[in-house]
Simulated scan of single mutants.
Amino acid sequence: MSMELTLDTVTVAVDGQVLLRQLSLTVGAGEIVGLVGPNGSGKSTALRCVYRALKPTRGVVRIGGDDLAGLPMSRTARSVAALTQEGGTDLDFTVAEVVALGRAPYLRGNQALGQRERQLCEQAMEKLGVAHLAGRGVLSLSGGERQRVLVARALVQEPEVLVLDEPTNHLDIRHQIELLALLKHSGLTVLVVLHDLNLAAATCDRLGVLSAGALVATGTPREVLTPDLLHDVFGVRVTVVAHPLTGDPQLLYSLQSSTERNRPT
């Protein structure tokens, strides 16, 4: 069951530096909201507040109306699943063992997986196309294979909220599309950071644009991904066209720099 996620005026300051400034954003139950912005704009910082790797300096994160900071960590572990940029493992567990770790918040001690847990793991591995790797050690996998294993682990957790930081990293184009299609039809509440704005436009119900730690725009991809905003935030000139099949905005970039365009002939 998915639940609404709310970040209410969340501010994060570390060593006197403000990384995130009064971020207010709501992700409705079953909605996919993407965070986009330049490097260092605060996207990953916002996600860390949701999966409690960081405590906001000010402001509140709520799940289903409950203040996340007031919930037991065991409840958070069942409610929020996260795929982080540092989400790998240095131990050579098998793929099946890594995926099964998603059930850890529901088990006590060394309790073995029951039939339902084993079925969940098998189904998740099938969905992510890694079932044939079940007996392989994760350290022997490619970056893309390992990424799909970690997404399977997150799904096995049966979270109410799924938080993903660059989930398409290391994936080839086929697996990028398959993963994002899976998220789109999952019914989960999803907050995701994506660098590829075309994939973000095709996947997300709404986008939040961050710049220098502040939310500068929010809305549907069509409302947000305008040439003026992209130039102001990312410093690039783009042409926005409608996808011929879906109507989603698609960005066409020029490799010619602003300096070259303005250079006298």
Rank of each mutant, 00 (worst) to 15 (best):
G88M: 10
V80A: 00
G109W: 13
L101Y: 09
G143Q: 08
S140Y: 03
E86F: 08
Q119K: 13
L120C: 15
H132K: 15
V156E: 03
A100I: 04
V80W: 00
G129F: 09
E126L: 11
L91R: 15
F93A: 01
Q115P: 10
E117M: 07
L113N: 04
R103I: 14
S79P: 00
E117H: 13
R153D: 09
R108F: 12
D92L: 10
T89A: 00
A134P: 14
Q119R: 15
H132M: 11
L150K: 11
T76H: 08
A124H: 06
S142Q: 12
R118F: 01
S142M: 14
E122R: 14
D90Y: 01
V95F: 07
G87M: 13
F93P: 00
P105C: 05
L101A: 02
A112R: 15
A124R: 02
S140D: 14
E122N: 07
E86I: 07
Q119M: 13
V149P: 07
R118G: 11
E97H: 14
G87P: 14
A82N: 04
V151D: 08
L155G: 02
A96P: 05
M125W: 08
V98F: 06
G114S: 06
V156K: 01
A82C: 08
R78Q: 13
K127Q: 12
V80P: 00
T89I: 03
L139F: 13
V99S: 05
L139I: 08
L139R: 13
A104Q: 15
V138P: 06
L155K: 10
N110F: 15
R108Q: 14
R103W: 09
A131R: 15
V99Q: 06
V138D: 04
A77K: 10
N110H: 14
E122Q: 12
Q119Y: 07
E145Y: 10
R118V: 02
R103K: 09
E86C: 00
D90K: 05
